[in-house]
Nucleic acid binder design. Structure first.
Length: 268
DNA sequence: AGCATATGACGAA
DNA sequence: TCGTCCTATGCTC
């Protein structure tokens, strides 16, 4: 389920398992040149929106490998963890990292390749405000939101404006905000933008903790069931008003909303 | 066994 | 806006 929370969680799990360890790296599928990482020290993982960057160090020279592995899971990608003795060569494994105890296996990514420092810099430059990045600057997103006539529901999926938000989070965020997905972005206003950013930070962070997207409240601190974890995404009936949930095509993908709780606004 | 489906993004037109 | 790529999973027959 790769929206930003998945990638940030992945980065911290990889660091927890492998940081400082010499790793064996390979590409059983043969579609990636893992050799530059083989026998190197795993030196860190960073999530940038939905992008994952992996760093390595040469154990002899103590020098960092200047290129980093750039991974983007896309819609189908998975990066799964196994105990070393259980991991096996099934399916199309693009990239495998073996540490002392755990093996991580990547399948189906949209991207898995080496990136030069310049390319990494350029990637960071084109990625919008990331709610999961403590140093993120929401003013950058606001600058676009305040000017654009595009529907807000389209901007939320545009990774150069916001990053890490995907199709589930965008639907849930707009529902919680009570805003119709087709509202022209510039009509949102500063107060509602601030609330949108606050909700994004809160919900994506919760996604990292719970390893899934959940936007409905816990009852007595208890984790809600999967069925009850979302307000509108792929649902038929609104959890608040029991009205119908409609799916509108926006930015090429369906966005689910309750047009009673998220009324279209009359614009001046 | 076969098929529909999926939380993404890109390039061509 | 459309077609294309990437793969696993869970249904249906």
């Amino acid at each position: 389920m790769p929206e930003g929370h998945t990638i940030h969680r992945l980065a911290s799990d990889l660091v927890r398992d492998l940081h400082g360890a010499v790793v064996a790296a390979s590409s059983p599928q043969g579609r990636f040149d893992a050799d530059p990482a083989d026998g190197k020290v795993f030196a860190g993982a960073t999530a940038v929106g939905k992008h994952l960057l992996l760093r390595f160090r040469d154990p002899e020279t103590e020098l960092d490998v200047s290129e980093q592995i750039h991974i983007h899971l896309g819609l189908f990608g998975k990066f799964k963890r196994f105990k070393n003795e259980v991991a096996r060569d099934s399916g199309a494994i693009r990239f495998r990292l073996v540490g002392a105890v755990y093996t991580w296996q990547l399948t189906g990514p949209t991207a898995c390749h080496w990136m030069s420092p310049e390319e990494v810099e350029s990637l960071r430059g084109r990625i919008g405000s990331d709610p999961l990045d403590a140093t993120a600057d929401p003013e950058r997103a606001w600058a676009t939101v305040a000017r654009s006539r595009r529907p807000l529901g389209a901007l939320l999926l545009d990774q150069s404006v916001f990053s890490g938000i995907g199709n589930v989070y965008r639907a849930e965020l707009l529902f919680l905000l009570g805003v119709h997905p087709e509202l022209p972005s510039k009509a949102l206003g500063r107060a509602r933008f601030d609330e949108l950013w606050r909700l994004s930070v809160e919900l994506l962070a919760r996604g990292v903790r719970e390893r899934r997207i959940a936007t409905t409240p816990k009852v007595a601190g208890v984790r809600v069931t999967k069925r009850e974890s979302l307000y509108v995404y792929k649902r038929r009936e609104c959890r608040k008003c029991s009205g119908p949930i409609v799916a509108i095509q926006l930015a090429g993908r369906p966005i689910y909303c309750c047009e009673r709780c998220q009324p279209a606004e009359k614009l001046p």
